[in-house]
Amino acid sequence: MNLDIRLPIGMLFTLLGLLLTGYGLTSDASVYQRSLGHNLNLSWGLVVLVFGAVFLFYGRRGTAAVRSADESPEGRATEAREHRTGLESEGPGAGVH
């Protein structure tokens, strides 16, 4: 797959983190009576933001490329087994070498 899932997760959590911390900085202290006096929008928002940023960083580096089966010992074994059992014709990628 060409889309690395870490990118959308990173983006969503970064945006959520920004929204929560932003709201936490500007909101009135009275809304935090419910949460036992903790401004969790600010503190948890920061955690969410950091998590999002880490995922964005690794997602952008991009490592989740599709590898050809003959690059790993296991892939070669699978191919050999499929060749023996005649199952290799399945799937759209078959025959493209």
Binding site: M1, L12, V66, G91, P92, G93
Partner: peptide, 29 residues
């Protein structure tokens, strides 16, 4: 924002869904 991302992922993956193996088995990838 959550709804937008969920739908966005679907749209982004549409171009990669070309065969039944892609659709039902994620192309085993």
């Amino acid at each position: 924002l959550y709804f937008a991302f969920v739908l966005g992922i679907g749209f982004a993956l549409r171009r990669h869904t070309r065969s039944s193996t892609d659709f039902f088995l994620s192309g085993r990838s």
